[in-house]
């Protein structure tokens, strides 16, 4: 659990051009009346890539992330995940979502279920796994995130950092083809952030395809393959992380970085 080390030597890295595209976002726009939330956003994530999406609050990054599994709708453009078009009316969204893991800012563990039940529910009800198989998988994942002893607890009995690691385990239990992270550390006390980032770093090292909305620039710099910078509903930069941090090409990204790194 101490894999805060740099990720550059992951088995699949460098995320080479040969890897197939898992998430393809093309020309997405969304507005509420006159308010434009997303404006012609395009980006793609290849299999095994970890991509950080950052930008000032209100830049549309969380909305873009939620469009990927259809939790938010969009008015134009297309999103294709593993060959399935998200916006297509004929797409079985429920089935697609069961194949994409998601981690929320406020964890959203189910408060009335135990930690283990949180992890087994969708396995049993969606994937039709047996209870025993789901529990076994759940326990293995709990141990992997360092919480093997908390299976019988209820979410409210855990710290924020522990809850978020359970949430990650819950998403992983579905054997997702990709993971979406929506500001996974924003609601955490500083001393708990590292535990969660460690789990995410390990996950990236294992070659999980990840789209991560976060303000954690350390993670973006050292773990992510690419950084996408958004402002005002537009994607302004999309660059390998080393390039983004060494030489942001837009003024707004430079200002954003200087503000956030000064903290």
């Amino acid at each position: 659990m101490t894999i805060s080390a740099v990720r550059k030597a992951s088995p699949i890295a460098p995320a080479s051009v040969e890897q197939p595209v898992t998430i393809e976002i093309t020309g997405i726009s969304k507005s509420y009346g006159a308010l434009e939330v997303l404006n012609d956003c395009s980006m793609s994530i290849r299999k095994g890539e970890a991509v950080v999406v950052c930008g000032p609050s209100g830049s549309g990054k969380s909305t873009l992330l939620k469009c990927v599994n259809g939790l938010e709708t969009f008015q134009s453009g297309s999103i294709v995940v593993d060959g399935v078009s998200v916006g297509d009316r004929n797409t079985d969204l429920t089935r697609l979502r069961s194949r994409i893991g998601m981690v929320f800012q406020h964890f959203e563990l189910y408060p009335h279920l135990s930690v283990l039940e949180n992890i087994t529910l969708a396995q049993v009800k969606v994937l039709r796994r047996s209870k025993a198989e789901a529990s076994e998988k759940g326990m293995a994942l709990l141990r992997r995130v360092g919480l093997g002893d908390k299976a019988g607890c209820h979410p409210a009995q855990l710290s924020g950092g522990q809850q978020q690691r359970v949430a990650i385990a819950r998403a992983l239990a579905m054997d997702p083809i990709a993971m979406l992270f929506d500001e996974p550390t924003s609601a955490l006390d500083p001393e708990m952030i590292k535990d969660v980032l460690d789990v995410m770093t390990e996950l990236a090292g294992d070659g999980m395809t990840m789209m991560v909305v976060t303000h954690e620039m350390g993670f973006a710099h050292h773990v992510a393959d690419r950084v996408v910078f958004m402002d005002g509903g537009r994607i302004l930069e999309d660059a390998p992380s080393s390039v983004f941090f060494a030489q942001p090409s837009t003024e707004r990204a430079r200002i954003f970085l200087s503000k956030i790194l000064r903290q």
């Binding site: 939620k66 929320f104 563990l109 189910y110 529910l121 009800k125």
Partner: peptide, 27 residues
Amino acid sequence: GQAMAAAASGLTLTQSYRYILLPIAAR
């Protein structure tokens, strides 16, 4: 958020109500 988490894990609307929303609401 709870409804979103349920949907994100692939539960149908009926399942979300049955296993998540209604048990919490009942309390």
